[in-house]
Protein backbone atom coordinates (compact mmCIF):
# COMPACT_ATOMS: atom_id res chain seq x y z
CA UNK A 1 0.00 0.00 0.00
CA UNK A 2 1.49 3.29 -1.03
CA UNK A 3 1.43 6.30 1.21
CA UNK A 4 -1.29 8.92 0.86
CA UNK A 5 0.23 11.88 -0.91
CA UNK A 6 -1.14 15.36 -0.39
CA UNK A 7 0.05 18.35 -2.32
CA UNK A 8 0.28 21.61 -0.44
CA UNK A 9 0.37 25.13 -1.77
CA UNK A 10 -0.50 23.80 -5.19
CA UNK A 11 -3.12 26.36 -6.26
CA UNK A 12 -1.26 28.91 -8.35
CA UNK A 13 -1.42 31.98 -10.48
CA UNK A 14 -4.43 33.75 -11.81
CA UNK A 15 -6.35 36.69 -10.50
CA UNK A 16 -6.18 36.31 -6.73
CA UNK A 17 -8.76 38.78 -5.49
CA UNK A 18 -11.22 39.87 -8.13
CA UNK A 19 -14.06 37.39 -8.63
CA UNK A 20 -15.74 36.49 -11.87
CA UNK A 21 -19.44 37.11 -12.25
CA UNK A 22 -21.51 33.95 -12.08
CA UNK A 23 -25.23 33.35 -12.39
CA UNK A 24 -27.27 31.30 -9.95
CA UNK A 25 -29.08 28.63 -11.93
CA UNK A 26 -30.64 26.57 -9.18
CA UNK A 27 -31.45 26.94 -5.51
CA UNK A 28 -32.80 24.02 -3.53
CA UNK A 29 -33.66 23.45 0.11
CA UNK A 30 -31.63 20.67 1.69
CA UNK A 31 -32.88 21.16 5.23
CA UNK A 32 -34.54 23.99 7.13
CA UNK A 33 -31.26 25.91 7.18
CA UNK A 34 -29.18 24.39 4.39
CA UNK A 35 -29.54 25.16 0.71
CA UNK A 36 -27.87 23.90 -2.42
CA UNK A 37 -26.88 26.65 -4.79
CA UNK A 38 -25.62 26.04 -8.31
CA UNK A 39 -23.77 28.69 -10.25
CA UNK A 40 -22.38 28.99 -13.77
CA UNK A 41 -20.91 31.75 -15.88
CA UNK A 42 -23.35 34.11 -17.62
CA UNK A 43 -22.39 32.32 -20.85
CA UNK A 44 -23.57 29.05 -19.36
CA UNK A 45 -20.20 27.48 -18.69
CA UNK A 46 -18.18 26.16 -15.81
CA UNK A 47 -16.46 29.02 -13.95
CA UNK A 48 -13.34 26.92 -13.47
CA UNK A 49 -12.26 23.30 -13.03
CA UNK A 50 -11.90 22.14 -9.49
CA UNK A 51 -10.52 19.00 -7.94
CA UNK A 52 -12.51 17.31 -5.13
CA UNK A 53 -11.85 19.13 -1.87
CA UNK A 54 -10.93 22.52 -3.25
CA UNK A 55 -12.47 25.78 -2.09
CA UNK A 56 -14.04 28.80 -3.68
CA UNK A 57 -14.93 32.23 -2.44
CA UNK A 58 -18.51 33.23 -3.11
CA UNK A 59 -19.00 36.95 -3.11
CA UNK A 60 -22.39 38.55 -2.67
CA UNK A 61 -22.29 42.30 -2.97
CA UNK A 62 -23.17 44.29 -0.97
CA UNK A 63 -23.02 41.85 1.93
CA UNK A 64 -19.64 40.24 1.70
CA UNK A 65 -17.89 37.06 0.71
CA UNK A 66 -17.43 33.64 2.27
CA UNK A 67 -15.22 30.67 1.56
CA UNK A 68 -16.95 27.36 0.88
CA UNK A 69 -15.82 23.93 -0.09
CA UNK A 70 -17.07 23.18 -3.57
CA UNK A 71 -19.53 20.37 -2.94
CA UNK A 72 -19.81 19.21 -6.50
CA UNK A 73 -18.89 20.08 -10.05
CA UNK A 74 -21.32 19.45 -12.87
CA UNK A 75 -20.57 19.64 -16.58
CA UNK A 76 -21.36 23.35 -16.61
CA UNK A 77 -21.90 24.40 -13.03
CA UNK A 78 -20.40 24.42 -9.54
CA UNK A 79 -22.50 23.44 -6.58
CA UNK A 80 -22.28 24.84 -3.07
CA UNK A 81 -24.12 23.56 -0.05
CA UNK A 82 -24.55 26.41 2.35
CA UNK A 83 -25.80 26.47 5.90
CA UNK A 84 -27.34 29.62 7.26
CA UNK A 85 -25.11 30.54 10.20
CA UNK A 86 -24.16 34.16 9.77
CA UNK A 87 -24.78 37.41 8.02
CA UNK A 88 -23.63 36.54 4.52
CA UNK A 89 -25.01 33.02 4.46
CA UNK A 90 -28.37 34.41 5.50
CA UNK A 91 -28.31 36.61 2.42
CA UNK A 92 -27.04 33.79 0.23
CA UNK A 93 -30.16 31.89 1.21
CA UNK A 94 -32.26 34.65 -0.32
CA UNK A 95 -30.73 34.06 -3.76
CA UNK A 96 -33.01 33.00 -6.60
CA UNK A 97 -32.16 31.56 -10.00
CA UNK A 98 -31.01 34.35 -12.28
CA UNK A 99 -29.31 36.36 -9.53
CA UNK A 100 -25.66 37.10 -10.03
CA UNK A 101 -22.85 36.55 -7.57
CA UNK A 102 -19.08 36.70 -7.71
CA UNK A 103 -17.02 33.52 -7.51
CA UNK A 104 -13.27 33.23 -7.24
CA UNK A 105 -11.10 30.18 -6.95
CA UNK A 106 -10.32 27.35 -6.97
CA UNK A 107 -8.25 27.59 -3.82
CA UNK A 108 -6.37 25.10 -1.73
CA UNK A 109 -5.46 21.49 -2.30
CA UNK A 110 -7.55 18.39 -2.87
CA UNK A 111 -8.26 15.00 -1.41
CA UNK A 112 -5.65 12.34 -2.20
CA UNK A 113 -7.91 10.55 -4.66
CA UNK A 114 -4.94 9.35 -6.71
CA UNK A 115 -2.78 7.93 -3.98
CA UNK A 116 -5.81 6.40 -2.25
CA UNK A 117 -6.62 4.16 -5.23
CA UNK A 118 -6.93 0.53 -4.28
CA UNK A 119 -7.85 1.27 -0.69
CA UNK A 120 -11.03 0.89 1.29
CA UNK A 121 -12.45 4.28 2.15
CA UNK A 122 -14.13 5.37 5.38
CA UNK A 123 -15.83 8.74 5.25
CA UNK A 124 -16.73 10.34 8.57
CA UNK A 125 -18.72 13.53 8.55
CA UNK A 126 -20.98 15.52 10.82
CA UNK A 127 -23.66 18.03 9.94
CA UNK A 128 -22.49 20.54 7.39
CA UNK A 129 -19.15 18.72 7.22
CA UNK A 130 -20.71 16.44 4.60
CA UNK A 131 -20.49 18.66 1.49
CA UNK A 132 -16.66 18.83 1.36
CA UNK A 133 -16.41 15.09 1.96
CA UNK A 134 -19.11 14.42 -0.59
CA UNK A 135 -16.92 15.77 -3.36
CA UNK A 136 -14.55 12.86 -2.71
CA UNK A 137 -17.39 10.35 -2.32
CA UNK A 138 -18.76 11.47 -5.65
CA UNK A 139 -15.37 11.05 -7.27
CA UNK A 140 -14.88 7.61 -5.73
CA UNK A 141 -18.28 6.45 -6.92
CA UNK A 142 -17.58 7.75 -10.42
CA UNK A 143 -14.38 5.71 -10.39
CA UNK A 144 -15.88 2.86 -8.42
CA UNK A 145 -13.54 0.16 -9.64
CA UNK A 146 -10.48 2.06 -8.42
CA UNK A 147 -11.41 1.81 -4.78
CA UNK A 148 -12.30 -0.97 -2.35
CA UNK A 149 -15.18 -1.03 0.07
CA UNK A 150 -16.69 2.38 0.86
CA UNK A 151 -18.20 3.17 4.27
CA UNK A 152 -19.90 6.45 4.98
CA UNK A 153 -20.52 7.34 8.62
CA UNK A 154 -22.58 10.46 8.88
CA UNK A 155 -24.32 12.19 11.77
CA UNK A 156 -26.24 15.32 12.34
CA UNK A 157 -28.02 16.93 15.22
CA UNK A 158 -31.47 15.79 14.12
CA UNK A 159 -32.93 13.92 11.19
CA UNK A 160 -33.89 17.24 9.65
CA UNK A 161 -30.28 18.42 9.75
CA UNK A 162 -28.99 15.59 7.57
CA UNK A 163 -27.97 16.95 4.20
CA UNK A 164 -28.04 15.00 0.93
CA UNK A 165 -30.81 12.69 2.18
CA UNK A 166 -31.40 11.42 -1.39
CA UNK A 167 -27.85 10.22 -1.67
CA UNK A 168 -27.72 8.86 1.87
CA UNK A 169 -30.84 6.75 1.73
CA UNK A 170 -31.41 6.06 -1.94
CA UNK A 171 -28.49 6.59 -4.28
CA UNK A 172 -25.40 5.58 -2.37
CA UNK A 173 -26.69 2.36 -0.78
CA UNK A 174 -27.40 1.12 -4.31
CA UNK A 175 -23.78 1.56 -5.36
CA UNK A 176 -21.70 -1.63 -5.23
CA UNK A 177 -20.03 -2.38 -1.90
CA UNK A 178 -21.00 1.02 -0.52
CA UNK A 179 -22.37 1.16 3.00
CA UNK A 180 -24.04 4.17 4.54
CA UNK A 181 -24.30 4.47 8.33
CA UNK A 182 -26.32 7.38 9.64
CA UNK A 183 -26.98 8.51 13.18
CA UNK A 184 -28.60 11.55 14.70
CA UNK A 185 -27.87 13.06 18.08
CA UNK A 186 -31.43 13.87 19.03
CA UNK A 187 -34.59 12.17 17.86
CA UNK A 188 -38.16 12.99 18.76
CA UNK A 189 -41.34 11.08 17.97
CA UNK A 190 -42.66 11.75 14.52
CA UNK A 191 -39.53 13.38 13.16
CA UNK A 192 -39.18 10.63 10.60
CA UNK A 193 -36.09 9.05 12.13
CA UNK A 194 -36.12 5.44 13.24
CA UNK A 195 -32.42 4.68 13.00
CA UNK A 196 -29.49 5.04 15.31
CA UNK A 197 -29.43 7.82 17.90
CA UNK A 198 -26.01 8.68 19.23
CA UNK A 199 -22.85 10.70 18.84
CA UNK A 200 -20.55 10.11 15.93
CA UNK A 201 -17.40 8.85 17.63
CA UNK A 202 -19.01 5.97 19.58
CA UNK A 203 -21.18 5.19 16.57
CA UNK A 204 -18.10 5.03 14.41
CA UNK A 205 -16.55 2.45 16.73
CA UNK A 206 -19.81 0.53 16.78
CA UNK A 207 -19.92 0.43 13.00
CA UNK A 208 -16.37 -0.87 12.88
CA UNK A 209 -17.18 -3.60 15.37
CA UNK A 210 -20.48 -4.64 13.76
CA UNK A 211 -19.21 -4.64 10.22
CA UNK A 212 -15.88 -6.12 11.15
CA UNK A 213 -14.01 -3.39 9.35
CA UNK A 214 -10.25 -3.36 9.27
CA UNK A 215 -7.99 -0.37 9.19
CA UNK A 216 -5.24 -1.86 7.10
CA UNK A 217 -5.45 -0.89 3.48
CA UNK A 218 -8.01 1.75 4.39
CA UNK A 219 -8.05 5.51 4.39
CA UNK A 220 -10.34 7.64 6.52
CA UNK A 221 -11.68 11.02 5.49
CA UNK A 222 -12.93 13.24 8.28
CA UNK A 223 -14.80 16.52 8.38
CA UNK A 224 -16.98 18.10 11.04
CA UNK A 225 -17.25 20.71 13.74
CA UNK A 226 -14.56 21.17 16.42
CA UNK A 227 -15.91 18.64 18.93
CA UNK A 228 -16.81 16.03 16.31
CA UNK A 229 -13.41 16.44 14.74
CA UNK A 230 -11.66 15.96 18.07
CA UNK A 231 -13.63 12.91 19.18
CA UNK A 232 -13.70 11.15 15.82
CA UNK A 233 -10.03 11.76 15.26
CA UNK A 234 -9.31 10.02 18.54
CA UNK A 235 -11.73 7.23 17.70
CA UNK A 236 -10.09 6.62 14.33
CA UNK A 237 -6.64 6.46 15.88
CA UNK A 238 -7.93 4.14 18.60
CA UNK A 239 -9.42 1.90 15.94
CA UNK A 240 -5.91 1.48 14.65
CA UNK A 241 -5.63 3.94 11.79
CA UNK A 242 -2.15 5.23 11.16
CA UNK A 243 -2.24 9.05 11.39
CA UNK A 244 -0.87 9.11 7.86
CA UNK A 245 -4.04 7.38 6.65
CA UNK A 246 -6.49 9.82 8.23
CA UNK A 247 -7.31 12.76 6.01
CA UNK A 248 -9.19 15.78 7.25
CA UNK A 249 -10.33 19.04 5.76
CA UNK A 250 -10.05 22.11 7.96
CA UNK A 251 -11.97 25.33 8.13
CA UNK A 252 -11.18 28.79 9.45
CA UNK A 253 -12.16 32.36 8.88
CA UNK A 254 -10.69 33.31 5.52
CA UNK A 255 -10.49 36.55 3.63
CA UNK A 256 -7.97 36.44 0.81
CA UNK A 257 -7.93 32.76 -0.10
CA UNK A 258 -4.36 32.90 -1.37
CA UNK A 259 -2.25 32.64 1.79
CA UNK A 260 -1.58 36.34 2.22
CA UNK A 261 -4.04 37.89 4.63
CA UNK A 262 -2.77 35.85 7.53
CA UNK A 263 -5.75 34.72 9.58
CA UNK A 264 -6.28 31.06 8.68
CA UNK A 265 -2.90 29.78 9.78
CA UNK A 266 -2.22 26.57 11.62
CA UNK A 267 1.35 27.08 12.71
CA UNK A 268 3.27 28.13 9.64
CA UNK A 269 0.80 26.88 7.02
CA UNK A 270 -2.33 28.54 5.73
CA UNK A 271 -5.50 26.52 5.41
CA UNK A 272 -6.64 28.40 2.31
CA UNK A 273 -3.44 27.83 0.33
CA UNK A 274 -1.65 24.83 1.86
CA UNK A 275 -4.82 23.13 3.04
CA UNK A 276 -7.64 22.61 3.57
CA UNK A 277 -6.81 18.91 3.28
CA UNK A 278 -4.21 17.50 5.65
CA UNK A 279 -3.40 14.09 7.01
CA UNK A 280 -3.40 13.64 10.76
CA UNK A 281 0.29 12.79 10.56
CA UNK A 282 0.97 16.21 9.07
CA UNK A 283 -1.22 18.03 11.57
CA UNK A 284 0.44 16.27 14.47
CA UNK A 285 3.72 17.90 13.50
CA UNK A 286 2.26 21.40 13.36
CA UNK A 287 1.94 23.39 16.58
CA UNK A 288 -1.63 24.39 17.33
Amino acid sequence: MSELVLQHGCAKGGEPYVPQVCRVIDVRDQTHDVKTIRVQTPEGGLPFERKPGQLAMVSLPPYGECMFAIASQGPDYLEFVIKRVGFVTERLHELRPGDEVGVRGPYGNWFPFDSARGRNLVFVAGGIGMPPVRSFIEYALEHRADYGRIDIVYSASTYDDLVYKDDLFQNWPKEPDTHVHVSVYHATDGDGWSGKVGYTAPYLKEVFAEEGLATDNAAAVLCGGPSLYRTCREALLELGFDPADVVTTLEARMKCGVGKCGRCNVGGVFICLDGPVFTEAELARIPR
Binding site: Y17, S59, P61, E65, K255, C256, K260, C261, G262, R263
Partner: peptide
Protein backbone atom coordinates in the same frame (compact mmCIF):
# COMPACT_ATOMS: atom_id res chain seq x y z
CA UNK B 1 1.04 42.36 6.71
CA UNK B 2 -2.28 40.82 7.77
CA UNK B 3 -5.26 42.40 6.13
CA UNK B 4 -9.00 42.24 6.03
CA UNK B 5 -11.20 42.57 2.98
CA UNK B 6 -14.25 44.73 3.44
CA UNK B 7 -16.46 47.05 1.48
CA UNK B 8 -17.95 50.45 1.08
CA UNK B 9 -21.52 50.20 -0.12
CA UNK B 10 -23.65 52.92 -1.70
CA UNK B 11 -27.01 51.50 -2.69
CA UNK B 12 -26.41 49.45 -5.84
CA UNK B 13 -22.72 50.03 -6.19
CA UNK B 14 -19.69 49.84 -4.04
CA UNK B 15 -16.06 49.10 -3.73
CA UNK B 16 -14.30 46.21 -2.10
CA UNK B 17 -11.10 47.18 -0.44
CA UNK B 18 -8.54 45.61 1.77
CA UNK B 19 -7.36 47.24 4.93
CA UNK B 20 -4.86 46.45 7.63
CA UNK B 21 -6.04 44.03 10.26
Amino acid sequence: YCFDISQDVRADEGARFRCWD
